[in-house]
Design a protein around this nucleic acid. Structure first.
Lengths: 201, 201
DNA sequence: ACCTGAACACCGTTCAAGT
DNA sequence: ACCTGAACACCGTTCAAGT
């Protein structure tokens, strides 16, 4: 608040004339972050490709505004116009994959949580002004110093951590999830699913 | 700190005799959270089943200690014994699915981020002492009040939000991811993959 | 040498005093 | 009526003063 006031060159209390709370301010920031996400046009490829593009942009938008990602992850009940437009578009694309209303809703929540969760993790890794390279180096050193006799898996991982990158890691998981959604959508296109009641042990 | 001191009935500053920082204290809390996660025995079913059980327990452990999840999500370079044991076991199980060292490392990061990210989202949804039911009700009201003519997808979702639950949502995503990992593991068992160099547009 | 608690530098927010 | 800034209740942390 004080920092924001100084940055704007105004009295810190002037902020309270526009926002009731710090909470209200951050809710508005969510809208600002989502505003930059470009919704895909109908001719941007298959539904899966359009969904992928949307989520890649969502991650970039969230990363640009620290603190916003965790709010989006919990699907806060503050539905500004951009939130509504993005959520609707995302749901529509998942429906296009062939999932019914019920599963598409669950899939949407999952996908948003994954994207936002990754951004939260990336932000935490860079806490205190550390760069992505700093974080990876620290992690690699820590893994390399674990006893390879006691924990051979850790030693193996230490040799592989160099390949990690925020971008590649995110896209690996994103593609895994999208493949799963596509596969689930295929069999069930306009077919009413009988509720399979599996006995829980 | 002050609250912790009062809870323990000691001077708040006494904490600094055991931990250098609040940061150091929370790092120790990570270990405490992971300590309760039971590592699966070899006869607990298939590798996929054991991995699933481990991750279900991981979520429960993280949820029991608010604030710990985001640290685990970013795979902090503070490798206490429980962190090492759990990471090693998890990596071993993913390797058992048939993924090579390189992909298993990426898959491990992804899976941890998903589980921890979900917990972060759940914590945020319950911010300010709200229950899961409170959060869902708020969300449902917000969705139901959006114009169904302008945004039909939102209206459809509003009718489906009642089925959401932290547990079911988590397990839906978890199973989707595990299925993807199993499928990727099958084809590549002890087969060296040629690096497919796809031209980026 | 060890422990205590006053004190410091922050933070979000309130509210009375200025114009 | 509007805006300013002093003041309040917090927070993590330091550090000098006690034993």
């Amino acid at each position: 608040m004080r920092a924001l006031g100084q940055k704007l060159g105004v009295d810190p209390m002037a902020v309270y004339r526009h926002f009731r709370d710090k909470e209200a301010l951050l809710e508005a920031l969510v809208e600002a972050a989502l505003a930059v996400v470009r919704l895909p046009a109908a001719d941007d490829g298959s539904a899966a490709e359009r969904l992928r593009g949307l989520l890649v942009e969502l991650r970039a938008g969230l990363a640009a505004h620290p603190g916003v990602a965790s709010r989006v992850a919990s699907t806060q009940p503050n539905l500004g116009p951009h939130t509504v437009a993005l959520t609707g578009a995302c749901f529509g694309l998942i429906r296009e994959l062939g999932l019914d209303d019920s599963e598409a809703t669950r899939a949407l929540v999952m996908v948003i949580r994954y994207v936002a969760g990754v951004v939260v993790a990336e932000e935490r890794a860079q806490a205190g002004g550390a760069s992505e390279a700093d974080w990876r180096e620290q992690l690699q050193d820590a893994y390399a110093s674990v006893s390879p006799i006691e924990f051979p898996q850790i030693a193996t991982m230490a040799t592989q951590l160099g390949q990690l990158s925020f971008d590649a890691d995110f896209e690996y998981g994103l593609d895994l999830i999208l493949e799963g959604l596509v596969r689930r959508g295929r069999g069930t296109t306009d077919t009413a699913q009988a509720p399979s009641r599996t006995a829980s042990t």
